[in-house]
Design a binder for these strands. Structure first.
Lengths: 239, 239
DNA sequence: TTCGATTTGTTCGTATGTATT
DNA sequence: TAATACATACGAACAAATCGA
């Protein structure tokens, strides 16, 4: 089964190599000329396919050097998936503290968002994010256990870098897209306590689901943010 | 002065024609072949420039028909600049009710966001947005008076379609990009009354600034949204 | 430091396919 | 049906950046 256009087919095959782990994150994929030979298409068709994958944050081009599989370094994550800024519009990098890690079963909402059966095994992590030392966000993360076999608490706690970087490094799972639903809510007692706010104080609730190639959901989380001094930045139109 | 690359120069000249009003919204621009002849470049270079302008929501391509200047119809606006959804993830189109219209002077924040001197004349509009008949958002809009000469209240109130559609239709000003800062806030007495909420109830505060070609600010507004049943959707990564 | 090989970036031109009018 | 316009694909040449010898 081939795609409707040639460059779509090339794109599909590149993503295939990526999700099989044939080309790993941070590495260069073969040159455009080599890909053209391999797929028996012109170099322009390869460029078309690669350009779309660059626009989708899957690949990164470096003139004179090569085309690389996007690596979820902290900087890269920050530039693509993190848009919480301070009063001056600057991104502040949070430091994570894992509050709890345990195995659980998917409730109805989680199951729907992750494409699982209700009651399917998930890993559930609560984490606190500090900015400038102060607690600013609390996360309640859920990931399908099936996607992360043999993951245990010490490994998760001992990771370096971002959660998505860890997914990529350790399990070969690359997050390429994230959808977030934002709402204002009154802080519950627990959320208020974690963030140093009174219960009932307004907090920003963010319900996020992260996807890998082929729109397969990888993780979902509910985050509460103290937006007294922070703001969520959203740019519409240009990209 | 020409741009670094040819297609960037072509893009610049297309935007030039657009902002001069040479090609108007909704109209087809000359064919790619005609543009190639006019600018003395290959058709591929024109396509490159046009593709970027399509990605930036300035132009719209229709195979077999032509390339058109994006028109701010309600549907188009909804698809590009409006991302507030109901519980089922559906976009609901709001109906506007103008609460007040008056001339004012820019405060410090407004001046900074619109690139004006503090105290510069602005038009200030308060509006209520209803979804399904119920008040769901209140807007406090400010636009530089200099950009909208001779605009008066009856004209503004009597407009049809969206505010940005009106800008385009009446003043040739096309909004191509919008930046929003989102925060959770406790509703003031006034905001609460307008939205049918108790004072202190959590509301989503959105501070938006809209830009036209060349990143010139056109309008800024502060919006409060009742997100008890609505959510603000944000997609990161793919676009 | 210099040089040359490699790789992506830009531009050109042409041919053919597909959708619209 | 015919003309028009965008979409896809091919191939070539040179520019610019990178990187190792």
């Amino acid at each position: 089964m081939s795609s409707r256009t040639l460059h779509a087919e090339v794109k599909r095959r590149i993503i295939g190599s990526l999700s099989e782990g044939r080309w790993k994150h941070g590495e260069a994929i073969p040159s455009e000329e080599a890909l053209a030979r391999r797929y028996k298409v012109s170099i322009g068709t390869v460029r078309h396919a690669v350009s779309e994958l660059v626009a989708e944050n899957v690949l990164v081009r470096r003139q004179g050097s090569g085309t690389y599989v996007a690596s979820h370094t902290r900087d890269y994550m920050l530039s693509v998936f993190f848009w919480i800024v301070d009063e001056k519009g600057r991104k502040e990098l949070p430091r994570v503290e894992v509050l709890s890690y345990r195995r659980a079963r998917a409730d109805a909402g989680t199951a729907a968002r992750l494409g699982l059966q209700r009651g399917a095994p998930v890993i559930r992590v609560r984490a606190l994010q500090r900015i400038g030392g102060r607690p600013m966000m609390v996360d309640d993360i859920r990931m399908p256990q099936a996607l992360f076999p043999a993951l245990d608490e010490p490994t998760f706690r001992g990771r370096e870098g971002t959660v998505y970087g860890f997914f990529q490094e350790r399990f070969g799972i690359t997050v390429v897209r994230v959808v977030e639903r934002l709402q204002a809510r009154a802080a519950s007692a627990a959320v208020g306590a974690a963030l140093g706010l009174a219960a009932g104080a307004p907090v920003l609730r963010i319900e996020r689901t992260a996807y890998t190639y082929g729109d397969a959901p990888v993780e979902t989380r509910v985050r509460y943010v103290n937006t007294a001094r922070l703001a969520y930045l959203s740019q519409l139109g240009r990209h």
